[in-house]
Structure formats: structure tokens, C-alpha cells
């Protein structure tokens, strides 16, 4: 199997991310996905509210955004395979996201071993100086699986 170029990897990661049914349902839009970094955002939607008394988006929707963004960062890392799965993800909520504003997650895959990728992510609303949430996660980096899906996809 020939390995993909950097541009191809980025395109694959972006296309892959936006086509995932759950990401589509949440209206996620992928921006930069390259070199172990990803930026993905999600518009405010009343269906994603967690508490109608405040109109604040549910933490679970923020989790989905963080998980997707972290996974995309892993897939775009030069040492990581094109397919990954979350091992664990911890999310800390700093403050409620302001109702009506879009949420943007920025993830960095800062280390990859032969089997594990390590990621950090931050989510903000339109006030980018005060984070809404931060996340740390570990993802699978199974190179054997990569070859399997490449074969299976043909």
C-alpha cells in the first residue's frame, strides 16, 4: 500500500468528517484539517439545547463536536493511520456557551505512538478569549486497521 500525500490525507479527513451521518445531523463544518490539527464548528440550533430555561446548548452536543474534531486531528497527523476510534475523552466545561452563537472546536494531536494518539482540544463560542470547554483524549492509532480498510474499501 502506498501512503497518501499530505494534501490527500487532509482531503480524506475533511470529506470523511463532513460525510459522517452524526456530524451531518449536527451540521458540523470542517475547516483546517492538516498536520495533526483540526478546526470544526457547529451552528447554534434550538434542537441541541440542554436546558430550555437558559437556551444553553447541551454538553453532549459539545462532546460530539470535540470528539469529531479530536478524531479529525488524529487522522491528519503524519504518523497516524486514516482511521481511528476514541479510547477515552474527558471534557471540562468552563462556562455555558452563549445561546445563539456558533461553537468552534480546535484540536491538536500532539503525540502519536505505534498504537495510541494523544489529543487536546478547546471549544469557544464567538468570544474566543474565554473557552467554553476543554478536552483531552486518547485515540487508537492502529496501522494494521488502516491497511485493512484500504483493502476493504476497494
Amino acid at each position: 500500500m502506498t501512503s497518501l500525500t499530505r494534501e490527500e490525507k487532509t482531503a480524506v479527513a475533511r470529506q470523511f468528517t463532513e460525510a459522517l451521518p452524526h456530524c451531518k445531523a449536527l451540521g458540523m463544518q470542517a475547516y483546517e484539517i492538516a498536520d495533526g490539527k483540526a478546526v470544526i464548528s457547529m451552528d447554534y440550533d434550538s434542537r441541541f439545547i440542554g436546558d430550555p430555561q437558559t437556551g444553553v446548548i447541551h454538553g453532549g452536543a459539545v462532546s460530539a463536536l470535540m470528539d469529531t474534531c479530536a478524531g479529525a486531528a488524529v487522522m491528519s497527523h503524519e504518523k497516524a493511520p486514516n482511521i481511528t476510534a476514541t479510547i477515552d475523552l474527558r471534557i471540562d466545561y468552563m462556562r455555558p456557551a452563549t445561546p445563539g452563537q456558533r461553537i468552534t472546536a480546535r484540536a491538536t494531536c500532539y503525540h502519536v505512538t505505534r498504537s495510541v494518539a494523544f489529543v487536546r482540544a478547546v471549544a469557544t463560542d464567538e468570544d474566543e478569549s474565554r473557552p467554553v470547554a476543554t478536552a483531552t483524549g486518547t485515540f487508537t492509532a492502529d496501522h494494521g486497521l488502516d491497511a485493512l480498510t484500504a483493502e476493504g474499501g476497494k
Binding site: P21, C23, H58, G59, S63, A64, T68
Partner: peptide, 24 residues
């Protein structure tokens, strides 16, 4: 439901909907 899928190849649920399910 189909919109919960995160990996169409396996197929498998998206980790995000699982996280939300546990949090709810």
C-alpha cells in the same frame, strides 16, 4: 437511528452520541 452513525464502514455509532447518551 441512522443519524447516530459515526463510522459508516464498520458501521459503528459516533462516539459523540455515546458521550451525550451517558451525560443525559
Amino acid at each position: 437511528s441512522q443519524m447516530l452513525i459515526g463510522n459508516p464502514y464498520l458501521p459503528a455509532l459516533h462516539g459523540g452520541c455515546t458521550a451525550a447518551f451517558l451525560e443525559v
